[in-house]
Nucleic acid binder design. Structure first.
Ligand SMILES: [Mn+2]
Ligand SMILES: [Mn+2]
Length: 1118
DNA sequence: AGAGATTCAGAGC
DNA sequence: ATCGCTCTGAATCTCT
């Protein structure tokens, strides 16, 4: 019925506005032969993504002469059921038997049906668990022999494997049950859903179980996942995340109520009345964009399930009283494009500081408040972790389990505003309305004081709006250095106490303190003591920083946070008694970890407007089960307990396992500002820069990772090309792609190439890019990796000593760019090896997930059309004039990562692996300049295809032979060597660049030696140096990065004490002499190790000359 | 009935 | 102009 109409509607509509939904564009109707004009215009009408889908879908057709027809069909199958005729025969009324409590499904269908189809549903008891996926036990009563078919719990658990069979059994069982209830007579169940294949996504009301039951009982088919796309005819879903919305565009996505209503009315109702994704919604404005400082994060769009689209549009237009909406609209105003200015003037346009600028990252991060906040936080967490490790406090938990906890939460009042204000003596933070911001009209208010807040100004607001609310708002600049120094005072203050069980940094301006044991003995005057300490803290911090802090205290973290909220500004509050009354009037959103999403989901259930506050007293009406069904397992329980003042969040810093000692699980670099590219080449450059940024962070953290994720923000359809915020990201969809590197690495070259490859696997045109994030996970400690590699070497490292180093110098421990050699055999991937050298990727403007095998298998005429279209779009390089390029090999070579998803690289970087020095030494000895390090095997191409094999196949004696040289020449070693050294030079230059950036980062840390009272003795440094020298000698000398870092350390040290620097350099010299003398005595005359070490010593000496001595500069002589 | 991948949401100013 | 980061834990998906 409606399905056919629907497709035609879509066809019609898409002809009118081809941009809206191209999935239903009609392919040519001709079947027997290809009308290339029609077909190519069809191809042309598809956007990139759909074009690729189309190509790949061709594989489903065996008969290529009918390809267009098949394509047509497969599209339609995906979007409409082909056989959904409904039998109109009468059957038993559903209500007559559906409410039997012995139904193993028992979900009280009656009340479902009644409640759902009447308005009174809205006022239903929030504790109504009838639709829960967590039926109470007592509902699973037996029903005699019928139970022999198995209870539904078991049935459901195994459904993934035996679903169909089980479904049949359930239907039989159900019929039997119905018959039984009907006095033994057989019952006909109307096959309402015949032909429907249904998939349920996410939480629904009624529950997935219930939908499953209703569907199969009425002859529909239920599938558990969408692995085979297109299999489902309907998707049942009540809440769609943006990602899913895109994914499900081609399906009929209906609300769960559709199923209920169908059953209630006993016929297949028009699904479009229940659709969750409206036709015109795609590409339209979406709500929820103006209210949070992190507007870009998470879901920008949420389907307005209760509003029609026109309402949505109207609300956008009408609601001008809400300044947030106004701001939102700004985002969709298309400014006059200075057309052409982007493309021309390739030389002199370096003025714009966007991501094309080589210095952009540096500039951006130097100014980004969120970047600073994140980095500060990470740094603090690491410092406190190391503090615990060093003092061997095992998480700092003296406290025993009994007794009341006393948690302090201390936080600066509007930190940035207060701190920045201190630079402006003429201003009064208590009288003048003040905000910290970059100043432009679409600039964010990072922090505003309480005077400004009285005008309605809020953090995260744009200046234009804040000015409207408070025309006299005074805007101050950021002053990150100042913030750091106040924070340092703040933390050092708390570290000066020794009464605390635990000090837990929350952020630059905020700390949680467990003081339980301090108050454990005297409970009688607990309140007075706590208040006294709170006052003292506030007074002291103010004395040190002239900034006001507030203090909240209570028996757990959540309550302390709420107490702090009440205390602000410039106050203190000990929430001790009357917790329940206190909680009642707290709004849910102000609970930690509870944000807008949860608030809205609750509002939905309570049938309140989304924006209306929900208070904890409202929450108490919900049972735990109900909350779990709404919010999920953990969150449901958490909220349930929060509502009762329960929170067992621990302030213990975890040091219990190696992963915890790493201090983090991921390292990432996000840039969602200033991302504007015109060509893929520009993007590639940026990807390399961002990879280097990641690399430098990895180096200073001493970690490697093996899983890389690229997250792209793509301008949303309908969003302005230039958002209201200058260089902002505007309104975006997000695309993730991640890859297993196979082995841990920190190598920016590898990361960079992989990023390029990842970009080419998604379908985001360069010009649409608005944000780029990269993230490395599955982290490993470099020291661990190194030591595991060095086990079989004479100089064995003890990682523990290094591990427990703490303070400034711990960041300076010698760190090699990690070198790992994959033991597993992998495919030789020549194309990959060419990435950096030939630059083949410049041919691409777009990328794809095109299945080349499918394309290659197509008949010639079809393939030609598709290839023409791909070329036209720049998605494949223009064919060489001579031959049709359609050979598989050729195309695969172009997309190297297509070949096998199993990787990929051998991660060998910068230095030859110790494992097999022999081979490299021999190769190296052929180099015309033996003193210069040649980094072999930087890419797997060289490493695996040629070099690795040599030493295994050729004996040492033979190596000296002329035959060897001949043999080597047969391998074209000269050309290879040239390439290698070329690449080496290039990468060395880039490493230098990186390390200088890195060093500049390090310096800021070193400039605060007082912080955390960490001092490193010269003796410790010497020990460290010994280890460094020893480990590096067999690698032919120190790593350039390490030298630079050490040099920068020396530089700082020299400022305080030149003598210490000289002592250290002298020490290095002595150690080198020591090793030299050992070598001289060595019996092994020509062993490779000896040669390596000699070379290493030479390299060390030159490093001293070049890098270290100039620092102490004077007439210092060794 | 759990592992691994992906996605979301929330936090700080 | 404008500097819309970064990490975590939970939920959800997919597959076995
Ligand atoms: Mn604060
Ligand atoms: Mn804070």
């Amino acid at each position: 019925m409606e399905s056919t109409d629907e497709s035609e509607d879509n066809l019609r509509e898409s002809r009118q506005s081809p941009e809206v939904d191209q999935d239903f564009v009609a392919p040519p109707q001709r079947v027997s032969q290809i009308d290339s004009v029609t077909y190519s215009s069809f191809l042309r009408s598809l956007d990139d993504e759909h074009l690729i889908e189309h190509i790949n879908s061709c594989s489903q057709s065996k008969d290529h002469s009918q390809i267009t027809a098949s394509i047509h069909d497969s599209k339609l199958i995906a979007s409409s059921p082909r056989t959904n005729r409904v039998e109109r025969q009468l059957s038993l009324d559903e209500h007559n038997f559906s409410s039997v409590s012995t139904d193993p499904f028992d979900d009280d269908l009656d009340s479902q049906l009644l409640g759902a189809s009447t308005p009174t549903r809205a006022t239903a008891n929030p504790n109504d668990d009838s639709a829960d996926a967590y039926p109470d036990d007592e509902q699973n009563n037996t029903v005699g022999e019928i139970h022999a078919f198995g209870d539904y719990a078991t049935y459901f658990r195994t459904k993934h494997l035996k679903q169909q069979k089980e479904d049949e059994e359930y239907i039989k069982w159900d019929l039997k049950r119905r018959a039984q209830l009907n006095g033994g007579r057989a019952v006909a169940v109307k096959p309402i859903f015949e032909g429907c294949i249904v998939y349920v996504n996410g939480h629904t009301n009624p529950s997935i179980n219930e939908i499953h039951r209703l569907i199969i009982v009425h002859s529909g088919k239920f599938i558990s996942y969408l692995s085979n796309k297109g299999a489902a005819t309907h998707i049942i879903c009540d809440r769609l995340t943006p990602k899913k919305k895109v994914e499900y565009r081609n399906y009929k996505v209906v609300r769960a109520q559709w199923v209920v209503d169908c059953v209630a009315s006993n016929e297949l109702l028009d699904w479009t009345q229940y659709r969750l994704i409206s036709e015109i919604e795609y590409g339209q404005k979406r709500l929820q964009f103006g209210d949070s400082p992190t507007r870009h994060s998470g879901s920008d769009s949420v389907t307005p399930s209760n509003e029609s689209d026109s309402e949505l549009a109207n609300s956008m237009a009408d609601n001008n009283e809400d300044p947030l909406l106004e701001e939102l609209e700004d985002d969709f105003i298309e400014p006059i494009e200075p057309s052409g200015s982007n493309d021309v003037g390739s030389k002199g346009e370096k003025k714009i500081m966007d991501a094309k600028h080589p210095e952009f990252l540096k500039h951006f991060f130097a100014n980004s408040r969120l970047h600073h906040l994140s980095m500060w936080k990470a740094d603090l967490k690491l410092r406190f972790l190391r503090r615990i490790v060093k003092e061997n406090k095992s998480g700092e938990t003296k406290r025993t389990s009994q007794g009341i906890r006393v948690i302090f939460h201390v936080d600066f009042d509007c930190f940035f505003a207060t701190a920045s204000c201190l630079n402006r003596p003429e201003l009064d933070i208590n009288k003048d309305p003040i905000a910290v911001t970059h100043g432009g009209k679409s600039s964010d208010v990072a922090s505003c004081n309480y005077v400004a807040r009285n005008f309605g100004v809020k953090n995260g607001m744009w200046v234009s709006q804040a000015k409207k609310l408070c025309p006299n708002l005074i805007m101050l600049d950021y002053d990150y250095k100042r913030y750091e120094s106040y924070s340092s005072e703040f933390y050092n203050y708390f570290l000066s106490y020794d009464i605390f069980d635990s000090i837990f940094p929350v952020s630059i301006d905020e700390v949680l303190i467990d003081a339980s044991s301090h108050f454990a003995q005297n409970e009688e005057n607990l309140v007075d003591m706590v208040n006294a300490l709170s006052t003292r803290i506030r007074d002291d911090i103010f004395k040190f920083t002239k900034c006001s802090v507030s203090v909240g205290v209570s028996r757990n973290v959540m309550l302390a946070k709420l107490a702090l909220r009440k205390a602000k500004p410039n106050g203190q509050f000990f929430l001790y008694e009357g917790v329940d009354e206190f909680l009642d009037s707290i709004s849910v959103k102000s609970l930690p970890g509870i944000g807008r999403s949860i608030q809205e989901r609750l509002a939905d259930v309570l049938n309140q407007p989304k924006t209306m506050d929900i208070y904890i007293r409202d929450l108490k009406a919900f049972s735990k089960t109900k909350l779990i069904s709404i919010l999920g397992d953990k969150t449901g329980v958490k909220l349930y307990e929060y509502a009762r003042g329960i929170d067992d969040t621990s302030l213990v810093i975890d040091t219990s396992n190696p992963e915890a000692l790493l201090g983090r699980k991921s390292v990432s670099v996000d840039v969602n500002f200033g991302i504007r590219f015109d060509t893929v080449s520009e993007l590639d450059d940026f990807l390399i820069r961002i990879a280097k940024e990641l690399y430098s962070r990895l180096i200073s953290l001493g970690v490697c990772g093996s899983n890389l994720t690229l997250k792209l923000a793509k301008r949303a359809p309908g969003a302005a090309v230039n958002p209201a915020k200058y260089l902002g990201m505007g309104y975006c969809d997000f695309v993730n792609k991640s890859s297993h590197l196979g082995v841990p690495t920190n190598d920016w070259g590898i990361i960079g190439s992989e990023l390029k490859a990842l970009y080419r696997m998604v379908n985001v045109p360069v010009k649409e890019l608005r944000g780029i994030s990269i993230s490395l996970t599955k982290l490993r400690d470099v020291e661990n990796l190194k030591s595991s590699k060095q086990m079989k070497l004479p100089f064995k490292k003890t990682k523990e000593l290094v591990r427990t180093e703490f303070g400034a110098f711990s960041k300076l421990k010698p760190i090699d760019s990690i070198q790992i050699e994959s033991g597993s055999k992998r495919k030789s991937n020549i194309a990959e090896g060419n990435v950096n050298i030939s630059g083949y990727h410049d041919y691409f403007n777009k990328e794809s997930e095109i299945d080349w095998e499918v394309l290659d298998a197509l008949p010639w005429d079809l393939r030609r059309e598709i290839q023409k279209e791909l070329e036209r779009r720049g998605m494949i390089p223009v064919s060489p004039s001579k031959a049709p390029p359609g050979t598989k090999a050729y195309l695969q070579q172009l997309i190297p990562t297509q070949i096998g998803s199993t990787p990929k690289y051998v991660r060998v970087f910068e230095k030859p692996q110790l494992k097999s020095p022999r081979k490299r030494q021999k190769l190296h000895s052929k180099s015309p300049s033996p003193n210069k390090q040649v980094m072999v095997g930087e890419s797997q191409f060289y490493d695996c295809s040629v070099i690795n094999e040599l030493p295994l196949n050729i004996k040492a004696e033979v190596l000296k032979d002329m035959k060897y040289r001949k043999k080597v020449k047969e391998f074209d070693m000269t050309a290879l060597k040239d390439k290698v050294s070329m690449k080496y030079e290039k990468s060395k230059a880039m490493v230098d660049e990186v390390s200088s950036e890195w060093i500049s980062q390090q310096r800021t840390i070193l400039q605060r030696p007082k912080f955390l009272n960490e001092k490193v003795s010269v003796h410790q440094v010497k020990l460290q140096l010994d280890k460094w020298i020893q480990s590096s000698l067999i690698q032919k000398g120190p790593h350039v990065d390490d030298v630079h870092v050490f040099a920068s350390y020396l530089k700082d040290l020299s400022k305080q004490n030149v003598n210490s620097s000289m002592i250290l350099i002298n020490h290095i010299w002595k150690v080198l002499k020591y090793h030299e003398s050992i070598l001289a005595m060595s019996v092994l005359v020509e062993s490779d190790e000896v040669m390596y070490m000699k070379e290493g010593i030479a390299e060390w000496k030159s490093s001293i000359d070049v890098h270290l001595l100039p620092i102490v500069d004077s007439d210092f002589d060794i």
